[in-house]
Amino acid sequence: MIRRRAETQQPTEDTELLRTLAGVCRRAAAGDLEARLPAIGDSPAAIEARSAVNALLDVTDAFVRESGAALSAAAEGRFHRRFLTRGMLGSFRHAASTIGAANDAMQASAVRVAESDRARLALADQLESAVLTVSEQVATAATEMGASANGLSDFAREAVAGAERGLTTVGSLRTASDQIRNAVDLINQVASQTRLLALNATIEAARAGEAGRGFSVVAGEVKVLANETSESSDEIIGQVATVQSAAADAIEVLESVTESIREMSRLVTGIAAAVDGSHDSGNAGLSQLAEVLRGEVSRFVTTVRAS
């Protein structure tokens, strides 16, 4: 149509054509890649010019659509969606390859992140399992220790009671010794009196002369008996002293043993409190501590898994 017009009209027509071309390029420059150059003539030059402009717009349009979509896909983890370099030439191809390389790098880093996630989850599983095992073992040990401590406490109480009964027994032995000593003192006094009586009887028998001779023999025998009684009493006193000394030693030993057992009982009570927990001080026992540890680790592991 343009070609059929007269030669003199040419400058106006060129102006019109250039305006159309400028309009399309301006639209494209402003980001409207829908713009394409309409037919501008039937001459081979006009057809080629239009084809060239539209080819530029086509490749730019395709590049913009591809690059945005390829990067969005990579951001969403759809790494299989590549930037197709086929049909892209020169700088377009180079840029497409660069985006492809970035895509590869993102994929590699996503793989690494996934691997580290897997490792972290495996670690969380291992930690949880280990803590579970430990806390179960601690709970079992605590139960056994608690039972042992209670048994020891009972045993200590019984031992202290037994030792106290022993002290009482030894104490009554001392009392009995004292009573024996009193009885022996009394016997000694009687023997002493008897010796005096025997002496007087000997004197009286001598004064009676021949008539008192038989009585003198009896008085001598009585004196011998009194002396023997005194000797036996001294022996008893000695033995009583030995018994009393032994009783005192026994008391000392028993008191020392009792104190040791009481100390042991206090220690065992401390162990029982550590194992079972103490209501007075509000301390948690081993079993509770193991449960708290398990709870804390479970919370930690849950956080690790979620992050």
Binding site: D32, D58, D61, A62, R65, E66, A69, L84, R86, G87
Partner: peptide, 24 residues
Amino acid sequence: VLAHVTPSFDGAGTVVGYHSSRRR
């Protein structure tokens, strides 16, 4: 062809048409 079909958006994000780039 291996066709890549995409919606065309205007500046306001409205779909104004469809575009197909096809490779061998």
